[in-house]
């Protein structure tokens, strides 16, 4: 779906979080000159159109003990990468799964997925089991655990942020 300038403004306003007020959608719309009914209708349309993929409580995992945050990167032949990506994305332990470009000589990995857990040994074992189960263990892959978090916040699209 195509986004109108108002949709963009609405998403930008929402990036800071829905107000914790009694009428949050009305309060979200006020600075944009939108009434509550319009805000609700546009948000429903954006969700229907797949622009908003998920609407709800966005939790930070680290404070809840999910400190083992693994980015798993795979070097899968180009002809097989889409199929591998679809199967990885369906695995319950996988959170995000993206194909990205290789950078020859600097970076050979083309498929990225995230696995979160409460400790590194557990996540390492989960990734090994996942690779075996999906028959991807023959391809070069690496687990990059996250260390320090220097910055994390919602995506701020548009000018309003």
């Amino acid at each position: 779906m195509d986004l109108t300038p108002l949709d963009r403004a609405l998403l930008a306003a929402l990036a800071g979080g829905l107000p914790l007020s009694e009428r949050p959608y009305a309060d979200l719309g006020t600075p944009l000159g939108l009434d509550e009914a319009t805000v609700l209708a546009r948000l429903a349309a954006l969700q229907e159109g797949g622009v908003i993929r998920r609407f709800g409580v966005v939790v930070r995992h680290r404070p809840l003990g999910f400190t083992a945050n693994a980015m798993v990167v795979w070097d899968i032949p180009d002809a097989l990468v889409a199929e591998a990506g679809r199967r990885l994305a369906e695995a319950p332990e996988v959170r995000l799964c993206y194909r990205r470009p290789r950078r020859p000589g600097r970076w050979p990995y083309s498929l990225f997925c995230m696995v979160h857990g409460r400790d590194r040994a557990m996540v390492t074992a989960q990734v090994a089991a996942l690779a075996r189960r999906l028959e991807l263990d023959g391809y070069d892959h690496r687990i990059l655990f996250s260390g320090r978090c220097f910055k994390q916040c919602g995506a701020h699209y548009g000018k309003a942020a």
Binding site: L18, L43, V58
Partner: peptide, 8 residues
Amino acid sequence: ISRVGAVV
């Protein structure tokens, strides 16, 4: 909680 909001 980071926010109540949308994942786009």
